[in-house]
Simulated scan of single mutants.
Amino acid sequence: MINQPLTPKEQKVVDEFEKARPGLGAKAESNIRNNDKTGWAEIIADTPLDELVAGEGSSTNSFIYRRIGG
């Protein structure tokens, strides 16, 4: 884990995650700093600044799960 200052783009990602849900900023920063395992820093570096924004969306789950109980 590298403990150097975040780049402006990395800091924006942390801020966007924190804004989307408090507490996620710390997880994003951890993923950035553990770049050798996650690759987040390279992905952020390759992403245009205007695309580094939190968005809201939904997804559907196509799996059917059996329920236990009533």
Results as ranks from 00 to 15, higher is better:
M1P: 11
Q4I: 12
Q4S: 14
Q4V: 11
Q4G: 09
P5S: 14
L6W: 13
L6D: 09
L6G: 10
T7Y: 08
E10H: 08
Q11P: 09
K12P: 05
V13P: 02
E16R: 14
F17M: 14
E18R: 07
K19D: 06
A20W: 09
R21E: 11
R21I: 06
R21D: 06
P22A: 12
P22R: 13
P22M: 07
P22T: 10
L24G: 02
G25T: 08
A26N: 13
K27Y: 12
A28L: 02
A28V: 02
E29P: 07
S30P: 00
S30V: 06
S30A: 15
N31A: 14
N31H: 13
I32Q: 09
I32M: 10
I32H: 09
I32D: 09
N34K: 14
N35L: 02
K37M: 12
K37G: 06
K37I: 13
T38R: 03
G39A: 04
W40L: 04
W40P: 00
A41Q: 12
E42S: 07
E42F: 00
I43G: 00
I43S: 05
I44P: 07
A45S: 13
T47Q: 05
P48D: 14
L49T: 11
L49C: 01
L49K: 10
D50R: 09
E51C: 11
E51R: 15
V53S: 05
A54T: 02
A54L: 02
G55R: 15
G55N: 11
E56R: 13
E56H: 10
G57M: 03
S58N: 04
S58F: 14
S59R: 07
S59Y: 14
N61V: 09
S62V: 03
F63M: 10
F63C: 02
F63Y: 11
I64W: 01
I64A: 03
I64P: 00
Y65I: 09
Y65E: 06
Y65G: 03
I68L: 04
I68K: 01
G69V: 00
G70N: 02
G70V: 01
